[in-house]
């Protein structure tokens, strides 16, 4: 097995946000217009978006032990689920697995937002305004969904974010090795953080981003035992969409409407 993955170790992150900037630089993504901070502490912007593929989230500090303040700073991006809701929900088969990564094929994407709704992590976003001066191999265009592609577009040996982390809080490697490393690290940090946990081993048949947390996942907004979307429901929506698609003349705007109607009809 040569399946790759990222390991995010929040017990080591110093919050320098080099990952966030490196991603924007390598993928030539525009800066968002921000004021003050968008989320807790230094978090900026508030969340991932169509032009922010990875993001560092600062949580409020936990002062239950004043001599050992716990301030969690967490790198977040697409978790690259093995069995991905976004992929299953996409009516156009625009999302596929590529070398173990969940990647959007923009030639197929119609910007219907099915992936955005299906993702429990709030990862893919449809770009509203055209930003075609940005992007690498393909410009960023309105009406298409964007998210982290693990640098499989404009490729490099180590994805940009992981290549710049100064403290090894974000590493990249063989998933099996990283799982072993994460488990060993968990044992090591347990005395310091008794409720520490690992996220991503089992969720959606295993995530491509494994995260070591200082507490249980729910404390950091990560769903515990997240459920895959209902295959039956998806099939019904897709069947309805396939029918309505005959009347869309291949136009993305009509396709989006067709998807919306299908979704609403199925409920």
């Amino acid at each position: 097995m040569n399946k790759k993955a990222f390991l995010v170790d929040t017990t080591k992150c110093s919050g320098c946000r080099a990952c966030q900037v490196a991603c924007k630089q390598w993928n030539n993504l525009p800066a968002e217009s921000t004021t003050f901070f968008g989320g807790p502490e230094y978090t900026n912007p508030a969340e991932l978006s169509a032009i922010t593929f990875n993001h560092v989230k600062f949580f409020p500090v936990d002062l239950s032990k004043p001599e050992k303040p716990v301030w969690t700073i967490m790198h977040k991006k697409c978790y690259h689920c093995e069995n991905a809701n976004c992929q299953n929900a996409c009516p156009e088969n625009a999302i596929r697995r590529l070398d173990g990564w969940t990647v959007i094929d923009h030639s197929r994407c119609i910007g219907c937002g099915a992936c955005t709704e299906a993702c429990v992590y709030n990862v893919p976003h449809v770009l509203e305004d055209d930003m075609s001066e940005y992007g690498t191999e393909q410009p960023l265009v309105s009406g298409k969904a964007y998210k982290c592609h693990a640098c499989t577009v404009n490729t490099r040996d180590i994805p940009a974010c992981a290549s710049v982390c100064p403290t090894n809080a974000l590493t990249y490697g063989n998933r099996e090795d990283l799982v072993k490393k994460a488990k060993a690290r968990l044992d090591k940090v347990k005395p310091e953080y008794p409720h520490a946990s690992i996220y991503g081993l089992k969720e959606f048949d295993g995530l491509g981003v494994i995260t070591i947390l200082k507490n249980s996942p729910d404390k950091f907004g990560l769903p515990v035992n997240p459920k895959p979307i209902s295959a039956e429901k998806i099939m019904t929506i897709h069947a309805m969409y396939a029918f309505l698609n005959h009347f869309t003349l291949g136009l993305p705007s009509l396709k989006r409407t067709a998807y919306r109607i299908s979704k609403n009809l199925v409920g």
């Binding site: 900037v21 525009p30 800066a31 968002e32 921000t34 230094y42 912007p45």
Partner: peptide, 9 residues
């Protein structure tokens, strides 16, 4: 811009 996005003010 990438740095002022993070700390704009």
């Amino acid at each position: 811009p990438w740095l002022t996005e993070l700390v704009p003010d």
